[in-house]
Design a protein around this nucleic acid. Structure first.
Lengths: 178, 178
DNA sequence: TCCATCATGTAAACAGTTACATGATTGC
DNA sequence: GCAATCATGTAACTGTTTACATGATGGA
């Protein structure tokens, strides 16, 4: 079984073929989510692993002096990607997102009322800011015709909006409305 | 700096004081999210670590034959919990959730149209099922007056509903409406 | 008496991060 | 000539999981 990151890397290479490990790193580095850092220490060993497992193949671009390895999916690599993508999806528990804000609110009882309000306001400000930048990106993706990147961005937008709406519900229930 | 799990354990102990490591494990095991398993291998060394770091203190319940360690937060433990809870929150990028469904849709281009539909339908069914069980729990928490557990559950509900709404948008954009 | 649950722990493995290290290419 | 970016890699560490191992308690 491949890890989630390994499957995602297969997906990234598939979309950017032929694709250097460095480019894979940049995809993660520029991603709005910081879930995977795309650090050299994770990506280079990982693509090597996928190559020696027969899921990726590479050609080394020479002549221009620098040795850049460009990866492509093998047929086996492609069918691995497809079987990860296709149903059955992981079950409901693994499909649930983990929200660091939600876990804080779970334990927020320990705070005084004004501190609770401060947390909620800080969260709201940070989420709103993020929402703006992701919305920008999504509009660009739409304009560029990158449908699947656009749809993924739309998911992120809806998720953040849900967090924002929930924050107002939390305020209301805790009697912290402005 | 404590890890996210260490902070959450501090929160769990705080809410259930005096609290055995086993009970902490059960909180994770029964959680609808599978983000942390609460495995013995993570929890027992972790609480020991927090104890030797002066954030938890324990009394060993004897006399009834079994040796159960019951933990409480020390003053330092409590102030650590509070400083994790209080602003400033981690920035927007870390506040974003990572959604395994969203990353699959990002790469779904590789699938044929019927397969895409099958993925979306599978996701919808699994999320709906999860929604029902979390909604039950949230109602129980509300009835029991467990406000913060209730609010956290409400966050999960809103998050799943957002995923469900997004799934319909994905269908629409991809021309896969029933 | 037996099974589920409560209860504690360890060893090995695994995934990923941080920090370090090197060097070529492109544009100013 | 210099800085930013492209490009590849390793070593040490951290956090967590899986699998194993043990034993007491409470109820059918």
């Amino acid at each position: 079984m491949l890890s989630e990151l390994e499957n995602v890397v297969l997906g990234v290479v598939n979309v950017n073929q032929p694709c250097s490990a460095y480019r894979v790193r940049m995809v993660f580095a520029r991603s709005p989510s910081r879930h995977w850092s795309g650090s050299a220490g994770s990506i280079y060993p990982l693509v090597r692993r996928l190559e020696s497992g027969g899921l990726l193949q590479s050609v080394t671009r020479r002549g221009d002096g620098r040795a850049t390895r460009l990866y492509r999916l093998t047929r086996r690599g492609r069918s691995r990607l497809l079987s990860w993508l296709r149903p059955p999806l992981p079950d409901g528990g693994d499909l649930m997102t983990m929200d660091p804000l939600r876990v804080r609110v779970r334990f927020m009882e320990a705070l005084r009322s004004e501190e609770r309000l401060a947390v909620l306001e800080d969260a709201e400000a940070k989420l709103r800011e993020k929402l703006v930048s992701i919305d920008h990106e999504a509009r660009n993706d739409k304009r560029a015709g990158d449908t699947f990147r656009y749809l993924s961005g739309r998911g992120a937008i809806r998720s953040i909006r849900a967090q924002l709406d929930w924050l107002r519900e939390v305020r209301k229930v805790l009697g912290l409305e402005k």
